[in-house]
């Protein structure tokens, strides 16, 4: 216990001994953590937006008024068996009318006049998909089913190119953000690892006399190595603190912007309730990067 305390003490002291290298290591750590947090958030945000869009634009299959219940049941179970389909919900003519009625004031009026002419709204199957990319293919498969005779049309048939384009764009943006974020995060991760690796290597070099003396007076391997690991982790802790402090105002401004422009209240609320988890992840990641690069430097340059 006393030994562990001494290892920590010595690690703390050493962190502040070589001011320039320590500063460089801390700054690059903070920048790396900020970039990783930023992209993790962007990916999360785009995905959640995409999810919302996806829920709005799943496939709707309209059914002819002449269709019998058994035919509809048969079609429903066949559609459910189609690969890529997540769930199928039957919406009857009455349900459709009810929905229209509940949707808005305008809808209420429309529903009223629709009732007068004998409810022209068709029954439908609402199909939820596992992946958005397959929508065209799945539409085709459903249309080719033998049970498809009762289908009048699908939302995909009537969809104009503009809507398709929006979906494709959202998917493209999502994939792009993930790719760019991933690459940038990895690049900065490598830079941070290298710089801290070098800082620790320098520390080992400048302290070689001390290390030799420690060996001479019978210090155990971990008593010598421990302070370097602590030093590396310290860069993680300080870097994470800087990143967190920077993140609070950035998060506030960006949050407001996203809520206003993208109606991203739900995503932001999710972030708000998980604030401490996010902070904890930043610290954890910082300590992990610091300790890992120290460990690499020690195993390469500190021969005991």
């Amino acid at each position: 216990m006393i030994t562990l305390w001494r290892v920590f003490k010595s690690g703390f002291r050493n962190t502040f001994r070589n001011a320039w290298l320590s500063t460089a290591a801390t700054i690059i750590m903070a920048v790396t953590l900020l970039i990783m947090t930023f992209f993790a958030f962007s990916i999360f945000f785009v995905r959640s937006q995409l999810n919302e869009v996806q829920q709005k634009i799943d496939l709707t299959v309209f059914i002819s008024d002449d269709a019998k219940d058994e035919q509809i049941k048969a079609l429903q179970s066949k559609v459910l068996q189609t690969p890529g389909v997540d769930s199928v919900e039957f919406v009857s003519k009455a349900d459709a009318l009810k929905r229209l009625e509940d949707s808005s004031e305008e809808g209420k009026k429309l529903a009223k006049s629709a009732t007068e002419i004998g409810n022209p709204l068709p029954a439908s199957l609402e199909v939820k998909l596992k992946e958005l990319d397959d929508i065209g293919g799945i539409n085709k498969q459903i249309r080719e089913l033998p049970e498809a005779v009762i289908i009048t049309e699908t939302s995909y048939d009537s969809r104009d190119d503009n809507r398709k384009g929006v979906i494709e764009n959202v998917i493209k943006i999502s994939n792009g953000v993930t790719r760019v974020g991933g690459i940038l995060s990895v690049v900065f991760l490598i830079i941070a690892l290298l710089i801290i690796f070098n800082t620790i290597r320098m520390a080992i070099f400048t302290r070689r006399e001390e290390i030799e003396i420690m060996k001479l007076v019978g210090a155990t391997k971990w008593f010598i190595r421990g302070p370097f690991i602590v030093e590396g982790s310290m860069y993680g802790v300080i870097g994470a603190t800087i990143a967190t402090i920077a993140l609070i105002p950035i998060g506030r401004v960006a949050g407001q912007f996203l809520v206003e422009k993208f109606n991203a209240g739900q995503a932001m609320a999710y972030f708000g309730t998980n604030f401490w988890v996010v902070i904890l992840c930043i610290y954890g990641l910082g300590i992990l990067i610091g300790a890992l690069s120290s460990w690499l430097a020690i195993s390469r340059h500190l021969k005991l």
Partner: peptide, 17 residues
């Protein structure tokens, strides 16, 4: 390390910190 704790050594160049 435990062995080294049982043997005291001094050198020409002192090896002090």
């Amino acid at each position: 390390p435990h062995l080294r704790r049982k043997i005291g050594v001094v050198f020409q160049d002192f090896k002090l910190l």
